[in-house]
Every structure is written in structure tokens, then in C-alpha cells.
Design a protein around this nucleic acid. Sequence first.
DNA 1: TCAGCATTTGAATCTGCTT
DNA 2: AAAGCAGATTCAAATGCTG
Lengths: 374, 374
Amino acid sequence: MTKTKAPEARALPLNQILDGDCIEVMNSLPAGSVDLIFADPPYNLQLRGDLHRPDNSKVDAVDDHWDQFSGFAAYDKFTRDWLTAARRLLKPDGAIWVIGSYHNVFRMGAELQNQGFWILNDVVWRKSNPMPNFRGKRLTNAHETLIWASRAEGSKYTFNYEALKSLNEGVQMRSDWVLPICTGHERLKDANGDKAHPTQKPESLLHRVLVATTNPGDVVLDPFFGTGTSGAVAKMLGRDFIGIEREASYRAVAEKRISRVRRFDKSALEVSTSKRAEPRVPFGQLVERGMLRPGEELWSMNGRHRVKVRADGTLVGSDTHGNIKGSIHQVGAHLEGAPSCNGWTYWHFKREGRTIPIDVLRQQIRAEMADRPH
Amino acid sequence: MTKTKAPEARALPLNQILDGDCIEVMNSLPAGSVDLIFADPPYNLQLRGDLHRPDNSKVDAVDDHWDQFSGFAAYDKFTRDWLTAARRLLKPDGAIWVIGSYHNVFRMGAELQNQGFWILNDVVWRKSNPMPNFRGKRLTNAHETLIWASRAEGSKYTFNYEALKSLNEGVQMRSDWVLPICTGHERLKDANGDKAHPTQKPESLLHRVLVATTNPGDVVLDPFFGTGTSGAVAKMLGRDFIGIEREASYRAVAEKRISRVRRFDKSALEVSTSKRAEPRVPFGQLVERGMLRPGEELWSMNGRHRVKVRADGTLVGSDTHGNIKGSIHQVGAHLEGAPSCNGWTYWHFKREGRTIPIDVLRQQIRAEMADRPH
DNA sequence: TCAGCATTTGAATCTGCTT
DNA sequence: AAAGCAGATTCAAATGCTG
């Protein structure tokens, strides 16, 4: 793996594991070049244990208000710094996922907001097989929290709504995900047979994250790569990855792991798409093509309203005050007294006694376009 | 109960709803006198325009004046101030619960830590019937987050481990709680029949909080009392409450509500536990978990049809007319020319030459879930 | 009284392209 | 940059109406 660290930004080192401190390495990469960042940062840096004030005096009473804050201050600076570097790397429409527990996730979430990231969802990974609370002094800690945020308010982030709906048996994916922790063959072991990394995440979690918020060919960067779960799943799913990891032992494990991963077939990577992604068809085209004739009548979904098609693809009908004219959407909305209306599903034409939504004509045109693209 | 030490401090006004700004009122009460604080502060939702459901009905947004803040700085100051006043009121071994969404909970959690509160658990309220995401642009916001924290590290907080275990069919209570939102008869209405408060919490949530972390006779203070769910449940459970609410209309509703509450008989305390149905397992989860790989082939029961699995848990295959895509049930039904099809028993995968129904994999997942119910 | 069907509703940072 | 407009988008429960 290359370690050419120019003072200037360099080209993107795709599908590699970079050695070094994640902040320095991120700052060496070109700004605005990454589609998605997935980050699973350490969360126990100085929250407990040897707390020192900025002047290096030792903390004595743990109960002390300011002592606690000094521990958090160091963690907050770390969070601020790596998030700043990460945000610089993101494309304007890029997004980030972070994962943490109650020890650190509140501080990460607040800093995300402070930096101008725009939170899209917080997601609860609900562990189906968590470690029990042995002492019976608290609730079983059975979840971790992820935060999904776009680079800024107004970013056109990627969200494969229909694909996630498919993953959830046809109903909207919720913000709570039930997935098992990483165990068994998936859990990587070192030479001694001990677990290679203490907090290895399950591939199922990354699968859902990447299917939801990236497309094939996207660049996914992970600044705390560890044993490379994000890279392994990215490779499977036909995404490019960039990993950053400063521990040589983790890099070695990840390298070997990812080399064994095989990319899925291209056809398997296509996911269900929504209507929004399909090409727009002007209603007038139905008239131009003779699928509907000028003067032909359309009926509303509920059968209460009747309008006529005009040669320019507008409709004309009447309400109690007189004639109304306009697009299929405008006339539908007006007649229903609704703020808006999808004319494609609202209006129906008649053929041989049957009432058919005009949307089927649009689907015919789209099918032709798919056969013979432009 | 300690008597007043500051000139302005007064004796504890138990089982009353106090009028005024919660910070001022809390500062007028004696320090170190409260066992538990439950706080449901404004979330700072930052809503933009109107939102309509797909049927064009308008969503009744939380746009009340009390949820408006000029920015994060103003919200943070507000949070800092009320938490400071709250912490002063707590007994040394007292604890606090706060509830919020991703809009505010990260900032609250960070400030709790900054002030020296000691987080014991973050708890996810998983709503069984959340409002969907109508535009299909994000995940369904199906949960809210509670934080449970003791006044300080080392506080000997109250936790009724066995009581919660009983509430959970004999196994440890987890950090994720599945409870319905507040609807139906429980939802309080005003004179016009509109909801009396836009964010009334379900009594089941408070029931669990108070059973878990208070004992009969404890003093529970709620600085954002609203319609008084915490007070009503405290009364039922034989705890004392102190409510603070500055809106006269909410106070009036709460007063009337609590006056009608009767303290439970001990025998009436237990809620009936309903037997859960077999949990639904989305087919996509088999793919996410790596039990089936994207691109892998499935065979129909009769061996006549072959399809490929895609990354989003849909299948793609072909009939005489071209490609067909859809869920395991849809594709099976289509290929058989049947009105419906149980894809779980219809489709089979191959392992080491053997043909195995995919339902076997679903049973594996259900077995895992059965080990750790809820 | 009841079953069945239609309607209502819930803490929501909920569009995107063209002009 | 702001306005205009096409057009895509919902799940679980409880209530209420009809027969």
C-alpha cells in the first residue's frame, strides 16, 4: 500500500488501506472527493482513568464538575478535529455515518450539528444477542446508535428508498434495525485465536448502510478502518473504499480479509428504484403519439369529474364557476380542492368499457425508451 | 425532607402543579430534596414548511411557540440552565431521565455529562406505531431516546432489577423498549376535541420509568409537566410528584386528569403480558446477514425455475417475455401463474449438492431472536 | 351487538428540476 | 436566487360509520 504523502492533495488512492493518523491522512487527500464516510471512532479515549487538566495537574476527585469536563474536553477536541477533516473530504452532496454508544455518541452528535452537518436520522442498531448485564445494576445495554447526516442542510444525499423497502418486506425501513452482533466465522481471530479487534462490526450492518446510502461506484472512506468491515462490504457491493488505520496489526488483518472478498455480480447489485428515478414523460406526448386523441374525455379516479383533452396536452373541464384549464395536475388539484394532485394516477380514460389510468400509457412509453434508449 | 436553607427556599409542595418558568421555580425549592427528575423538554424541531400525507391531508405539526429557539446557542443555554437547576434539586443519590429526538438529545446528553451527571443507560423507546416518513426521503423516525443518569458517578441510584425482569417475562430488561404512542382514550382532548398537548407521552412509558427507578413514597419532579403524564403515573404508583408548567391551559388539563387518577391496588399493578406472535423476518435479512449472497441462485420447489438474489432482497429471473423482478412471493406467484405464493417454502438454495428451502434460514433467525425476546 | 369497511392520526428538521 | 410547477409519497391503530 502506498504511503506517498505529498504536502499537496494527491489523487484518490482507491481500494487501499492507508497508514497513519486519520486526521493527517484525510488532510492529504483532495477536498470534495468522497461520497460517503463511515466512522466508528474510539470512544473511551480519556473519558475515565488518568484525567489531566490542560496544565497537566492530576485530577483527584472524580466527582468534580470541572475534572470531568477536562476529560471530555480532550475527547471533544479529537472529535472536532477528525470531523473537520472528514467534512472537507466530502462532496457537497456527500454524507456521513458515525456509530457510538452513550459514552461518546452525544458528543459526536452535538459536534456534527455544530459543524453544519445536517442530521437525517439517528438509527438504533438493536442487537439481537447482546451481552447481558451481569451485575443486574442497569438495563442490558442492547443497542448502539448510528447517526446519518448529510454534509450540509440542502445536500442532495443518496437514499435508496425502494431498496430498503424491499429489504423490509415491502414496508418502509424504520430507524431501528435488528441485527445480530459479529460472532462465529465472521469474527476475525489473530494468531493466538483471540479476537483480532475488540469492536468488529457485523457485515450486515454495513450492508444496510451502504445499500441505503451509496450507489455502485461510489467512494466510501473509513477513517477508523480497524479490520476493514466497511471495506470488505464496499468491495462486495461494487463500491470503492479508502481505509485509514494506524495499527499495523489491524491493517494486516484487513488486507488479508478484503483480498478474499469477491465482488457480487453486476446484476445482483442493481436494486429496486423508485418512480422518481425514471425518465420524465410529458403528458402531451400521449396526445402527440395518438395514445389519447384531442377531445377525448378523461374521468377522475372517483368518477365524479370529467374533462376533455386538448391538442397541447392541457385539460379543460368545468366547476361551479365556469371553465378550468391547465395541466393534468393543476386541474385535478383544483377539482379536488387539494394543494396538489398527481394527475397520472388521478385521471382515467375508457377503452371498450374499461376504465384505465393514464399512467399505464406513460409506462408503455417508458418501456419503449428502455428498449431503445434515445 | 430537609427544611429550607436559602431565604427563598420553601418546603416541598408535594402533589401540586406549580405555575411559572421551570428554572425560577426549581431554584425556589430546597436543594437536595428530590429523588427523581423526569424531563421532556422542547425538542427544537426546526420545521420548515407544511407537510402533507400522500392523501393530501395536512400533518398537524408541532409549531408551538415554546418549541422555537433562535439557534443551537440559545438551545444550549436553555439546556444548561435548566439542568443546573435540576441537579441542585436532586438528592445525592438521585437520578434524572430526559427524553428527546435527534434534534436535541445529543446536546442534552453532552450537557448532562459536562455537568457531572453519570449516564447509566440510554434507552430507546421503539414506537410500535410511529408516523411514517411520507415523502420517502429518510428512514421512518420510529424511536425516541431517553437518557437515564445519576446525579454523579458513585451515586447509589435506585434500580428495581427484579421488578423490571418480571415486566419482561423473566429475562433482563433491555435498553430498547417497544411501546405504542399515546392515542385513543388516553390522549387528552381540549374543549374543541383537538389534542390538548401536541406531544403527550404514553403512560406505559412513565410506568416503566417509575417502576424501574423509584420506590413508593419517592418524590418525582417534572419541570416540563405538560398534561401531567408523569404526575398521573406517579400517583397511580404511590409516588409523590411535583409538576412545573407555565402554560395555564396545560395546567388545567393536568389538574383535572390527576384528580381522577386512583392509586392502584397492589394487585392491579401488573399489566397483562400478551403472547407474541412469531416475529416477521424480512427475506432481505438473509442477504444482509450473508446467509445468501447477492447473485446466488435459487430454485423453485419443482426445479423448473431459477432466479438470482439481489442485494436488496429482491429476486430477478426471466419468463418468456423478459425479466421479472420482485419479492420472493411475487416472483414465485408470477412464474407459477398463481394469484399468490409463499416464497419461503417455494424457493430453495443449494449447499454441497443439497437443495434446501430458504425457510430453514428464517427458522435459524427466529431461533436466535427467541433466545433474547424483546 | 357485531363484523366489516372507511376514515383519521401521530414530536417531521420529508422534492427537485426548470426558468 | 427565487419562483413556478411537475409529480411522488404512508404504517399501525383507533375511531366511526354501515348494514
